[in-house]
């Protein structure tokens, strides 16, 4: 990174950190620059890496699929018109239909069946037993059809303990994750910017 780049990054980092003291114009400016740059970059990269090679170049090459794609894109934009807005439902219907058709079997297999298969496994060890109890207890906590009484109440209460363990582990990892970001920026400020490391 050039010296100017390091200074810009350092000023941006300090402007964002200044929010920890109190909200201020420097923080808001840095925040808006970040959002603007992110959106601008997304637009440019989408045009350059997707719209040009997948739509513009095929049209120039006389590929009819490029024209179909372009028409499909333009139909989406008819939403801005009150008279022709209904046309946008055509590509949306295809996106929703194809999306549901593709994702339902994939999600059912990956998120439900394979995960369930991992719980109901033939070899029995401590992990398998704890995992099975955890799944059943947690599911019983989310079973709202009948009031939790008797053994069902015990299972639901056990489920809350498993949930607490999960939330605790996730919170711990979240702190670790956020600290890693702080470490990265501090290392940049002390090392790349101030040259103290």
């Amino acid at each position: 990174m050039s010296d100017a780049g390091i200074w810009l990054a350092a000023i941006g980092t300090l402007a964002i950190f200044s929010f920890l003291y109190r909200d201020n114009p420097a923080y808001r400016a840095a925040e808006q620059i970040l959002v603007g740059l992110s959106v601008g970059y997304l637009v440019v990269i989408t045009v350059r890496t997707t719209l040009v090679p997948k739509v513009a170049l095929p049209i120039l090459d006389g590929d009819p699929w490029g024209i179909v794609a372009a028409v499909w894109v333009l139909l989406m934009w008819t939403r801005v018109s009150t008279r022709a807005g209904w046309l946008s439902r055509l590509p949306l219907a295809v996106i929703v239909g194809a999306g549901a058709g593709l994702s339902i079997p994939a999600m059912l297999k990956a998120r439900v069946l394979s995960q369930l298969g991992a719980v109901i496994r033939p070899e029995i060890d401590v992990n398998a037993v704890v995992g099975a109890i955890g799944v059943l207890a947690t599911l019983s906590y989310f079973y709202f059809t009948r009031p939790p009484t008797g053994a069902f109440r015990v299972a639901a209460r056990t489920g809350t303990w498993f949930l607490m363990v999960f939330f605790g582990a996730t919170f711990g990892y979240t702190i670790m994750s956020r600290l890693s970001l702080l470490i990265g920026r501090t290392e940049f400020l002390l090392g790349d910017w101030l040259g103290l490391l």
Binding site: S114, G131, F166, Y173, M176, S177, R178, S180
Partner: peptide, 25 residues
């Protein structure tokens, strides 16, 4: 990133994920 480790550990246990490493650690 470390924050996603607990989300994907079940996929590691079921064998759908072959391996994972998480965060700075």
């Amino acid at each position: 990133s470390a924050v996603m480790v607990t989300t994907f550990t079940p996929y590691l246990d079921s064998g759908q994920l072959q391996a994972l490493i998480g965060g700075l650690k």
